[in-house]
Amino acid sequence: MVRVTNLRKHFNGHKVLAGINFRVRKGEAVALIGPSGSGKTTLIRTINGFVIPDAGTIAVGGQEIKYRNPESLRQARKKIGMIYQLFNLVERTSVQVNVMAGALGRLDRGLSLLSSTLGFFTRQEREKARELLGFVGLEDKVRERVDRLSGGQKQRVAIARALMQEPELLLADEPIANLDPKASKKIMELLLRINQEKKITLITVLHHLDSVRDHFGRVIALKEGAICFDAATRTLNDHRVQDIYSIEEEFACVAAQAGSI
């Protein structure tokens, strides 16, 4: 489903991604961990085309992402849903209008382009938005303004917006970093349910190792822009966690990576 090959990126001389290679199969759920500044967000943003890599390729669903071709990039983004730490909703509008944004990529031609730009949608699309809001547990908030919702509710709206795209791949960058433990648990359960029931591939950046252990079968760890662990979650013991988050013992990291391939 996702194939990342030799991915490199640097920002003003500072190496952020130093040759990343991995594959994610269709329907898989992967947790991406690593210390702050290790390049997790950068990696996620290269997958949906907001960061252009210096070298290497990414293919999603067999299609290579062409960063220089806006139309092809847009087609690629249509099938990738994205969940953010700060939800990134349009605060002043209603829940429903925010969810409808997920349909825009589909309504990209002729009359439907015009009407969707002006905020008119077909009954079918509106029904679908309502149905998805039911799925994430917000059926009674359809007309509520987003700025009146709690953090957990906002993240549900964002998830419904992503689902509205009918994505093949769902990316989430620290989706629960701004939520309380209870809401965090519910959001993680919701994401995993989507992964299992709808067979949508899921890649999530997480800082809570407990959540990682509870929910994910596979973990990829980044350290200083390189993958230093990529294996089943059960093999992630305390010693390896120390390796990932410690700064000195680089050789241990290399060893762990060699072991996992």
Binding site: F50, K78, Q165
Partner: peptide, 10 residues
């Protein structure tokens, strides 16, 4: 939010 909407392929 502008980036989020762009990310949907709008």
């Amino acid at each position: 939010p502008v980036e989020a909407v762009e990310a949907t392929g709008a």
